[in-house]
């Protein structure tokens, strides 16, 4: 235990850098993941016959073991953060896409029918009815994607993208358990922290009238 605290103090700078790198990687990956998956989810909810194939493709990506995916990408894209980011984005897509789709298609048909009958345009129905009612689902998807990404980002070290994986890897190579722990613990804390924050946002995002 003392060994662990000593390591924390002596490697403070390195851990701090890796920690920030890790946040950067996860955050950017999830942000881009949202930017891609959210509109795609909205589109496939409207044109439902494309839903199966699109979700299917992202599901296949999801089944590739993460280490293998990093391995595939290196020969194509070389090493460095872009490679790591692309892999992480691919993993973030499925939960967000699927939850967006499920959330929107799950909105009660009679609610939409009422909006249509009162003269709302498709865009108005999407923005004022479908998205607010699907928001809790969408947020849950983003939460899953974030926790997933924080975990997988430890593997970014193998493509030279840094992050807390660096610390863990270094610890493993030098049989330094304290160092492994100094890398793993922040990852866990980061995942839990993100999860709590997003849980809070998810709660806030639930439309007031639906809370009971």
């Amino acid at each position: 235990m003392r060994n662990f605290f000593d390591t924390l103090v002596s490697r403070q700078d390195m851990i701090q850098d890796a920690f920030l790198e890790h946040i950067y990687l996860s955050f950017v990956a999830v942000a881009i993941g949202i930017a891609i998956a959210l509109p795609t989810g909205i589109i496939i909810a409207r044109y439902r016959r494309y839903a199966e194939p699109v979700i299917g493709v992202t599901a296949i990506f999801q089944t590739i073991p993460s280490l293998a995916l990093f391995g595939f990408l290196v020969p194509i894209l070389g090493i460095g953060s872009p490679t790591a980011l692309i892999a992480l984005i691919i993993y973030a897509l499925l939960p967000i896409l699927r939850n967006t789709y499920t959330g929107i298609t799950g909105v009660d048909g009679s609610t939409i029918e009422a909006g249509r009958g009162m003269g709302m345009t498709r865009t108005q129905i999407l923005r004022q009815i479908e998205l607010p009612l699907a928001l809790p689902f969408i947020m849950a998807g983003i939460r899953t994607a974030t926790v997933l990404t924080v975990g997988i980002a430890t593997l970014a070290t193998f493509v030279g993208a840094g992050g807390l994986g660096d610390i863990i890897y270094r610890g493993l190579q030098s049989y330094n358990n304290a160092l492994v722990l100094a890398g793993a613990l922040p990852v866990a804390l980061l995942a839990i922290g993100f999860d709590l924050i997003l849980k809070w946002i998810e709660k806030r995002a639930t439309p007031k009238g639906l809370k009971n």
């Binding site: 609610t111 009422a114 249509r116 009958g117 004022q128 009815i129 009612l133 439309p207 007031k208």
Partner: peptide, 16 residues
């Protein structure tokens, strides 16, 4: 449609 009132069966109200 905006010039015609429309009342629907059951949950026509927007819950949110």
């Amino acid at each position: 449609r905006r010039s015609i009132g429309y009342v629907i069966q059951r949950i026509g109200l927007f819950p949110h």
